[in-house]
């Protein structure tokens, strides 16, 4: 692995996507409107919840706001990087252009993951961080260097985990022609990340921690920011991320081997 090479390439692909996107300026405004309305709606739902109770799953209103901010930022990442690329593997395989990508001296997983980046959902990410900031101010929590560092680490794990799950779905398109259905499944599961994992009980909570780890996606980063993260949870986060990223990579390699031995 050569980090510098891939970082340069990522930057170039990002610039490329912007110049591709420039044609469609109206998307920018549509996206801001979309983001604002979905954030407002989520806030309203939260308000309704907190009319009945002071906490959900042991989390206060402001803490859940932080969580919502994390959720929104992650959602932005999905829209920027993951969703634009997922449908294209199938197209590449069908049109035969997948061969042209495999011929290039670049990691095909990297190239196919990041070739298309949509710029505008950056507003989701920014609004997410804004929400976190707002919650922090209204909670009056001390923003310490340790908190922020831990938050960034946990958020990074969340992004990686999200990527790994998405990559596993994407790789399935070697065998299934329509992965769009799987992305619907993903979206509905991802919705559960709007709430702290403590809301869910028993087996469901285990499922949402280890199998479809929404805990790693939003609960742990939010907890890190508010200072409620336990070392055990941090460890789980690192572990789950490592396992998922490895599985995603191995799965991709298997799919490639399948492709190079079976396709004609």
């Amino acid at each position: 692995m050569r980090p510098f090479y891939y970082l340069t390439l990522l930057l170039l692909l990002f610039k490329l996507s912007i110049s591709e996107e420039m044609e469609y300026r109206s998307n920018f405004f549509a996206n801001i409107l979309n983001t604002l309305s979905s954030v407002l709606f989520a806030l309203l739902t939260l308000q309704v919840f907190f009319l009945q109770t002071d906490e959900i799953g042991g989390w206060t209103f402001e803490q859940v706001l932080v969580l919502l901010g994390v959720f929104n930022a992650l959602d932005g990442v999905v829209e920027m990087v993951l969703r634009p690329n997922i449908g294209r593997i199938v197209q590449h395989i069908r049109k035969g252009t997948f061969d042209l990508i495999l011929m290039k001296p670049v990691d095909s997983q990297f190239y196919l993951s990041f070739r298309h980046i949509v710029f505008w959902p950056i507003t989701d990410v920014l609004l997410g961080f804004g929400l976190i900031g707002y919650a922090a101010v209204s909670m009056g929590i001390q923003v310490t260097v340790l908190n922020v560092a831990l938050f960034l680490l946990m958020f990074g794990m969340g992004v990686l985990t999200l990527y790994a799950i998405w990559m596993i779905l994407m790789t399935m398109s070697f065998w299934f022609v329509k992965v769009e259905n799987l992305t619907f499944l993903f979206s509905s599961l991802f919705e559960t990340a709007r709430f702290p994992v403590q809301v869910y009980k028993g087996a469901l909570r285990l499922l949402l921690t280890f199998v479809f780890p929404v805990a790693v996606l939003t609960t742990f980063p939010a907890a890190a920011f508010t200072g409620a993260l336990t070392w055990r949870d941090a460890l789980i986060s690192l572990l789950v991320t490592a396992v998922l990223v490895t599985v995603a990579r191995l799965f991709w390699k298997t799919a490639l081997r399948y492709y190079t031995s079976a396709s004609s």
Binding site: Y5, L12, S19, E23, M103, K104, P105
Partner: peptide, 27 residues
């Protein structure tokens, strides 16, 4: 590998941009 029926060029932007991507990929 050049295939007459398959294109690596990026559709919506000038070909020079594809060249630049290849420059980075091939270092």
């Amino acid at each position: 590998l050049v295939m007459g029926q398959k294109s690596q060029l990026i559709w919506d932007i000038p070909a020079m941009e594809t060249f630049l991507v290849n420059q980075a990929i091939y270092e």
